[in-house]
Amino acid sequence: MLHIEWAPIATVAAKEFRDRLRNRWVLAVALVFAAFSLVIGYFGGAQQGEIGLRSAEFVIASLVSLVIYLIPMIALLLGFDAIVGERERGSLDLLLAYPLTRLELLLGKYLGLAAALTLSTLAGFAAIGILLFAHFGVSVLDQCVRFVVTSVMLGLSFLSLAMLLSAVARDRASASGLAIALWLFFVLIFDLLLLGLLVASGGNVGGPELAGALLLNPADLFRILNVFSLDAVRDLYGLASVVPPALANPWVLGSAMLAWIVGPLTIAIWRFRA
């Protein structure tokens, strides 16, 4: 049975969080999110000849693409050297000389980085959320909350993957290469492979099998959780014909996203303690 002391975990987490505040990482990421979200919110409909906040549904649907590209990259860059960086600098043995287990060290680092990522995400999307609320009223509250919560969950899932990479990599160069490869696979290559399989099979492979494969990608889970719930735009993404009603259940998709947070982190803990 594992024995965990939360005091050293909180100490490590607080240090990681303070470091990100001190080097202005949280501020920089929040400003990036705020700037991009405001630009997309106001100019996302320019190609249709419209400028301004058209509707909350179209603004959020446009922001989904931004989040899928940016948040996984930021989370991977944030956590890829959390463990291997300490090992390469020679400070890992020093940290473990304190009354601190490997499990407590990894959990502390993850929680501190997760807090920094969560704060930057919330702060970054606060501006567009306030504008949507002021423009469209309380009716947008549910959509905005869903979007922000799932954005945080997407970031935490890729942060868990980053911690796993950091626990298994031999050095920072290997970890950074794996992080880039992971981002390319989940954000770009995965959907292309599914589309290629669908085309190559002449449409014979699809339906529940294809929809089930989407559970294997946290970026696709995030997209479905947000876009499938917006009746006005889900047909534009082709999700209405791909995702069966059973997998359109937000509780099912949310549980799958939670598994992407817990699963890689659990493997990272196992690997780091081995």
Rank of each mutant, 00 (worst) to 15 (best):
L113G: 11
D93T: 05
V84A: 05
P208E: 15
G108F: 04
V227S: 07
I189N: 10
V84N: 05
M73E: 05
L103M: 11
G108L: 00
D235S: 13
P99E: 01
V252S: 14
S65I: 09
V242I: 14
Q48A: 14
G129P: 04
L66F: 15
I4Y: 13
L214N: 11
Q143G: 12
R146D: 14
G155R: 03
L154R: 08
A75I: 02
P264A: 09
L247C: 10
G52Y: 04
H3G: 11
R22I: 05
A211M: 06
D19C: 01
L164D: 08
E50T: 08
I261V: 15
V39C: 06
L27G: 07
L66N: 08
A181R: 02
V59K: 07
R170D: 07
A181H: 01
E50R: 09
L96F: 00
A75N: 05
A211E: 09
V29F: 15
R20P: 04
F136A: 05
S229C: 07
T101Y: 04
F228Y: 15
A116V: 01
E57I: 00
G202M: 09
L76R: 03
W183N: 00
F222E: 11
K109F: 01
M257V: 04
L95Y: 02
A256S: 14
L21G: 11
S120G: 03
L107F: 04
W25M: 06
G202T: 08
V149F: 12
E50G: 00
L194P: 08
L161F: 12
K109E: 05
V59W: 12
S55N: 08
V262N: 11
A167M: 03
F33G: 06
L193Y: 12
L194V: 09
A175S: 14
A232I: 02
A162I: 10
T121I: 03
N249H: 13
